[in-house]
């Protein structure tokens, strides 16, 4: 969904760059409103770079044309919650804006990862009721913390826990606290961390993991993967970025996968990281879904 939206933005950039006789652009970070304390720019940037490349627009640091922009929560014409990404193409020599374009991301998992959402969403039979719950959940986050266990509410069967420790040493659950409805914890720059995904529901779930808007499989040899399965009433620990089914590259605070050479220009924010896990029921194709699905 993010790629589809940024594909449209890329087309607009491609046309404007063609008109200028340029084949390369430099990408600046996409900013979120301060109150969101979000950090989806790395995810936006990686998807945008891929879509530009598909259209023969190179991303190059010295380019004369610069793409920059911002994003935030919005509503589409039908009243559905979306993330609206607004991009601009700037001529760095003259400071002139050559093109601008807004695109909407409407997939709820993508939205949650970009804004760093914490919410329970009821499986309402009435779509309008579910939409209302989503808008409410996005505007009023509801993080619940019990020591190191972080959930979207005291009765929610889904939770995450961050395990952190020195590089090469043991990792232990890290205590979190709630500020303005969102969970926070500290991880030092020298530390590594892992993410425990907890499913206390009586059915298996598909858990989607995003860090700074980048999916767990963003650097994988299997980019077609999108989630991990957590069996009923169990948990799993994700220790790093997925590379292959046998190898993960450990999560460290200061950089994205070192071995992903092509991603050198993608750097984490120096002060804030955002981890988002999304949970949905899962069942074998041909098997039976939970009754409320």
């Amino acid at each position: 969904d993010l790629n589809r939206a940024l594909g449209k933005l890329s087309e607009r950039i491609k046309r404007a760059a063609d008109a200028e006789g340029e084949t390369a652009v430099v990408l600046s970070p996409f900013t979120a409103p301060q109150r969101m304390a979000a950090n989806g720019s790395p995810g936006i940037r990686k998807a945008l770079e891929a879509e530009l490349k598909r259209r023969d627009v190179l991303v190059k640091n010295g380019a004369r044309l610069e793409v920059k922009g911002d994003y935030g929560e919005a509503e589409d014409p039908a009243g559905k919650a979306v993330v609206r990404i607004h991009g601009r193409l700037i001529d760095r020599d003259s400071g002139r804006s050559l093109a601008e374009h807004s695109v909407d991301v409407d997939n709820l998992t993508s939205i949650a990862g970009l804004v760093g959402a914490t919410m329970s969403v009821p499986i309402e039979p009435v779509p309008a009721d579910r939409e209302r719950a989503i808008r409410e959940g996005l505007s009023r986050p509801s993080a619940h913390v019990s020591s190191s266990r972080i959930s979207a509410g005291p009765k929610s069967p889904f939770a995450i826990e961050i395990l952190a420790g020195p590089s090469g040493g043991a990792i232990r659950p890290r205590t979190a606290e709630v500020i303005n409805g969102q969970a926070y914890l500290n991880i030092r720059s020298s530390e590594r961390y892992a993410i425990k995904l907890i499913n206390d529901a009586p059915f298996e779930v598909a858990a989607t993991l995003m860090i700074d808007g980048l999916g767990l499989f963003a650097f994988s040899e299997h980019p077609e993967y999108s989630y991990v399965i957590i069996p009923a009433r169990s948990s799993g620990v994700i220790t790093g970025w997925h590379r292959t089914n046998d190898e993960a590259e450990e999560f460290v605070v200061t950089e994205y996968p070192r071995s992903a050479a092509a991603e050198r220009s993608l750097a984490p924010s120096p002060d804030l990281g955002v981890i988002t896990a999304c949970f949905a029921a899962a069942w074998p194709a041909g098997g039976n879904p939970p009754l409320d699905e």
Partner: peptide, 20 residues
């Protein structure tokens, strides 16, 4: 072995912000 699965609608999103 890979088992094809279907998934339902999002039930919960949980985020944690970490400061360095």
């Amino acid at each position: 072995a890979e088992v094809e699965r279907k998934t339902g609608r999002l039930r919960a999103a949980i985020s944690v912000r970490y400061t360095k």
